[in-house]
Nucleic acid binder design. Sequence first.
DNA 1: AATTCGTTTCAGTTGTTTCTGAAATAGCTG
DNA 2: CAGCTATTTCAGAAACAACTGAAACGAATT
Lengths: 190, 190
Amino acid sequence: MTLSPLVQDFVLHFGEMGGRWGMNRTVGQIYALLFVSPAPLCADEMVAALGISRSNVSMSLRELQSWNLVLLKHRADDRRDFYTTPEDVWQILRTLAEERKKREIDPTSAVLDDLIARRAADAGDRHAQARMRQMQGLIGQLAGWYDEVKALDNTRLAGLLRLGAKVTRLLDATDKFRPSRRALRGKSTQ
Amino acid sequence: MTLSPLVQDFVLHFGEMGGRWGMNRTVGQIYALLFVSPAPLCADEMVAALGISRSNVSMSLRELQSWNLVLLKHRADDRRDFYTTPEDVWQILRTLAEERKKREIDPTSAVLDDLIARRAADAGDRHAQARMRQMQGLIGQLAGWYDEVKALDNTRLAGLLRLGAKVTRLLDATDKFRPSRRALRGKSTQ
DNA sequence: AATTCGTTTCAGTTGTTTCTGAAATAGCTG
DNA sequence: CAGCTATTTCAGAAACAACTGAAACGAATT
């Protein structure tokens, strides 16, 4: 299989970015290829398209599966595994949010809990713990935020992002409105 | 300089996570050390505390500066450079958002613009471009979102994250209320 | 149970990144 | 400007991650 220049360039760019996104080059390239392919691909087609070894494809697909970024498909009368990405880019965003949280936030959050629970001996430690508590607060908020994103349906997620420049106004507005709204319907709010 | 076990473990954890966060071990460790230190540190203190070479510290500080994650301080009658992190964790969050966008989103956004602007030859390319447009849409929203975070003041940023489980309700509420509010003040909204 | 087709694993190689020590640079002080 | 002190650069060494080919594995078919 030979790629059009357009798809070539897309794939190569994802390869380059792969490193920055916490995967490696091959994983990035395979994901890009699957993302733009009109139909699911099998491993050998990826080998042909990307010019990499069969085993590399196998390991990279494994990695992509561990990220939940690809879907496995089968054809009638064909034993091979075919792979795609989800059609829905919002779904992809949710998955990314979830996996990133799992890899980048949760471990630190757990460690911070431990460290903060320790007996702080001297003044230095007390200062360090105070700092850690600040960071834990921040991380906790972020974690909650990621969970939130993960749980929103497409419409609401799109809405949330679309707010864009209106977030400020919205926040101000809710600060202003919330009390009266709560008053109207009787403390339903946390 | 010798570190307390508490700070040791904090520093070591950040070293481990550094890789996942787009920096390397040493950069992570130095950042952690600065974050919990009650006073700014000079390079030699970091060498002593972390047991790494002077040149490694120098390069890592350079890296941290390129991320805008550290502040340079000076003492009277002392030519050495002393480093800290910003006190304010919200500021840190904004910086991270900004730098992440710059490194992980903007380059891809630019490439996608290019690719989408190309003449699509065959059906495969047309499909690929359609996919790329979807991705570009998503990335554009995300970029806007990061810009938004970057521009919010502490209070509003905290508010935004604190929304937590209320985002859904809030979004529903605004959908319900916006039309009437717009009607009240005349289509000021996009 | 042997064959075939597809996938996975793994030891070893290649390629990158990180880290170091030594040398070079820059900036201040007398 | 000579002598300090602090910092940066850089080539090579050490550590690490990626990739390959070959062999092992598994599942369906005869």
